[in-house]
Design a protein around this nucleic acid. Structure first.
Length: 760
DNA sequence: ATACCCTTCATTTTT
DNA sequence: TGAAGGGTAT
């Protein structure tokens, strides 16, 4: 019997999609080709479970890889249902694990408000452990060590396990570092991204009662992008699904492009072996691309072995042929891109936001950007400088994290002298050494800093003041929301001003970022149920920048092929199709064959992003690592049947290179890639503008002429870092003149010879 | 505190 | 090539 609600939820689905929605019992593997309506199936399936089968939302668990995917899924499910889907767990693997560990923190051996360390924080810990163990960062490059630790965690290997399998000297040393690293995290009540997964699996492994609780609760489990799961994610899924076995995984083995990060394609290839009762459904009808584009993608991917096998088709016959362009060099390629993009916009009527340029490496964006700037074409780079990795953002979040979790040593080290408050490395290290000896955490010690031996009274006093400030915030944190708290922190620390004087471009940029952060936080407070500091940190710690990408602006999108997964554009340009670049080769890489297959999948992902038009380009020579390399066409190009290519371009031609222009006239300014969201109401708007800015702007940016500088007391000066200030005292003469200058908020002693003071 | 000089190192990066 | 990070002189 078909109910009315069923009709609305199931209408417009093709036969396999319908089966995928309605097959709710037992393991289900949905092989969803690119553009085959995967998200549609997932959301309708959840709506069907709740709305028609009557499954309570809290019995459903859905895990994705990105916040964006999770958010979209939740929104669409709620749109299909007439009631809210409260209690349903829809989130990224990491957020689900964080929630699990938070709820079961005692069994997991964590404090309730543990910090989540990102890769920069990890690096700080590795450096610290490296120093403590006396090893050289030449022999053990921190990034490499971090990488090895991550690999170990991806294989569920803890320090003991790692040490057992470490045979070489290098590996044994790394095992020691791993042990120290983990001890640091523990002392800081912190976990890294990999820990979220690994510790969750451990929790379920070691605590049968906890395992049972969640196994029984989650009657229906859905996993998106299953081809990208790593070992811990695979184990987590298996644990949770073991009792009900109502596990639905969606994926495409042909789009597995993260093996280098620990994703194991065997998870999807062996699904039917892991779950013998599996129903297999293939979604092969593509609703995105033209026949031509699909033919190209099918032809390319057919060269891979060990696939589940599937063939995309569409009932939209024909389409524009694929255009192949052989250019002289990367500049020529970029010029061709600009012309073609403009042509498609003008004659073809394709808005810039409908077009995307894809490349294998971020470095390739430069030449393209130069030409776009020259042509005045607006563009957006996805995944360039990450918002949450910017110094000023990390600093402010460092304060917030420390207030929430005072054991967080990485955050403490980050902010204790930011802005500078005279607690230098020496004092800090003495404090840390003493703390290590007492076995007490460093934060508590700050409040009794006078007990620390060898510490100057001045340093101790500064530490106590810092501690008292944080303590005051900790008390307030329970009473006010996170937006108010952040404002208080900014005010009390004078952080915005410490970034530099008004008019300095870099400082102003950083202040704009602070404003954006504040807007985000205020947005969070408006939307969230729990507006506390802790709740906010739980969300923001797992934020990535793709989540911020604004695709409404009418600008050309530039991004790596990896970033393009899951997106679609009417026109797609895949550039740099040259041997060595795409497929990329690394001089000392072993498994050549495996990596070529993954590169090919990456090409497949790129091709299948295109709805109507596909452009491919390669250059005859390209500047890389400073030198100019002769380039040969990518092997992948030969895998595209000739008949699919544009008639005129089948004979590959070399376009005439423009005479080299002066390199000077290309603007070095990179675009800001994130559109600032709506400006919030901010009562204390003056936090970001220098109170003296009206006057100061005239002075800064002058030509550095200091001849007319008056060093009399009472005279106004401008310091490039501290801004405008008034001279309170003077001693010495000539270059040795020392001035005491009162700036906004701070008074500084300045040696005239070293400071670049301007008349104010 | 900061300018500047040196070396080093350049795939991809959902959290 | 050129950016970033470390070290050192002023």
């Amino acid at each position: 019997m078909t109910t009315v609600s069923e009709i609305s939820k199931l209408e417009g689905l093709n036969e396999p999609q319908l089966q995928a929605v309605k097959t709710i019992d037992g393991p289900l593997l949905i092989l969803a080709g690119a553009g085959s309506g995967k998200t549609r199936v997932l959301t309708r399936r959840i709506a069907y479970l709740i709305g028609d089968i009557g499954v309570p939302p809290w019995r459903i668990l859905a895990m994705t890889f990105t916040n964006k995917a999770a958010g979209e899924m939740r929104d669409r499910v709620e749109g299909l249902l007439d009631r809210p889907s409260r209690g349903m767990w829809i989130g990224t693997f990491h957020s689900v694990c964080a929630r699990l560990l938070r709820t079961e923190h005692e069994a997991a051996g964590l404090g309730p408000n543990f910090s989540i360390y990102d890769s920069t924080d990890q690096l700080a810990v590795v450096r610290k452990v490296l120093k403590a163990s006396g090893m050289s960062d030449k022999d053990f490059p921190p990034k490499q060590v971090r990488g090895r630790i991550g690999q170990a965690k991806n294989m569920m290997s803890d320090p003991d396990g790692f040490a057992r399998t470490a045979h070489s000297y290098y590996e044994k040393q790394v095992a020691d570092l791993y042990r120290g690293y983990q001890a640091e995290l523990e002392a800081s009540n912190a976990v890294d991204f990999d820990d979220l997964l690994m510790k969750s699996v451990r929790l379920l492994n070691d605590h049968p009662a906890v395992l049972k609780k969640y196994q029984e609760r989650f009657e229906y489990i859905l996993i998106d992008e299953y081809q990208d799961t790593n070992r811990p994610q695979y184990l987590l899924t298996r644990h949770l699904a073991a009792s009900h076995q109502n596990l639905c995984v969606v994926g495409d083995d042909d789009q597995s492009i993260y093996a280098w990060r620990g994703a194991d394609i065997r998870n999807i290839l062996d699904f039917e072996r892991d779950y013998p009762e599996t129903t297999l459904i293939r979604l092969e009808q593509n609703y995105r691309s033209t026949q031509i584009i699909l033919d190209a993608s099918n032809a390319v991917i057919a060269n891979n072995e060990g696939r589940k096998g599937k063939r995309l088709w569409t009932d939209r016959k024909g389409g524009e042929p694929i255009r192949l362009r052989w250019t002289f060099d990367e500049q020529d390629e970029a010029r061709w891109l600009v012309t073609t993009v403009q042509e498609l916009k003008g004659v073809g009527g394709l808005a810039l936001r409908e077009q995307a340029v894809l490349y294998r490496t971020n470095a390739q964006s430069r030449a393209i950007e130069e030409q776009l700037v020259r042509a005045n074409l607006p563009y957006v780079i996805v995944g360039d400088v990450k918002f949450y990795e910017r110094r000023e953002i990390k600093d402010v979040l460092g304060y917030l994290r420390l207030i929430d979790n005072p054991l967080d040593v990485v955050s403490l080290a980050r902010v204790i002298n930011t802005p500078r408050r005279g607690i230098g490395d020496t004092s800090f290290n003495r404090m840390m050494d003493f703390a290590a000896g007492t076995g007490e955490g460093p934060y508590g010690l700050l409040g009794r800093a006078e007990e620390i031996p060898d510490l100057s009274r001045a340093a101790a006093a500064k530490m106590k003041r810092f501690w008292a400030m944080i303590e005051a915030f900790r008390e307030k944190a329970d009473q006010i929301d996170v937006a108010e708290l952040t404002l208080e922190v900014l005010k009390a620390t004078d952080y915005a001003q410490s970034l530099g004087a008004a008019g300095q471009e870099e400082a102003e940029g950083r202040r704009r970022n602070l404003e954006e952060l504040l807007a985000n936080i205020e947005g969070y407070v408006d939307r969230a149920e729990d507006t506390s500091l802790g709740a906010y940190l739980r969300e923001v710690s797992l934020m990535a920048d793709v989540d911020e990408w604004d695709d409404r602006a009418d600008a050309l999108t530039l991004m790596t092929l990896h970033s393009a997964k899951g997106l679609e554009f009417r026109a797609v340009y895949i550039t740099g199709l040259e041997e060595g670049l795409f497929p990329i080769v690394r001089a000392w890489d072993e498994e050549e064959e495996d990596s070529t297959e993954e590169e090919r999948r990456l090409f497949y992902v790129g091709i299948t992003r295109a709805k109507e038009r596909l452009f491919l380009s390669h250059a005859r020579q390209r500047r890389r690592f400073g030198g100019t390399q002769a380039c040969h066409p990518s092997r992948f190009l030969a895998e595209i049947p000739e008949r699919l290519l544009d008639e005129g371009r089948r004979v590959r031609e070399v376009s005439v290179a423009e005479p080299a222009r002066s390199r000077r006239d290309a603007s070095p300014v990179r675009h800001v890639e994130v559109e600032p969201s709506a400006t919030p109401t901010r009562p204390q708007g003056d936090l970001f503008s220098d109170p003296e800015s009206d006057d100061a702007e005239d002075g800064v940016g002058g030509d550095g002429e200091t001849g007319s500088l008056s060093t009399e007391t009472g005279a106004w000066v401008i310091h490039p870092y501290w801004g405008r200030g008034v001279i309170e005292a003077r001693s010495g003469s000539g270059g040795d003149t020392k001035l005491t200058v009162r700036f906004q908020g701070v008074t500084k002693k300045i040696v005239l010879r070293y400071a670049r003071l301007l008349p104010g």
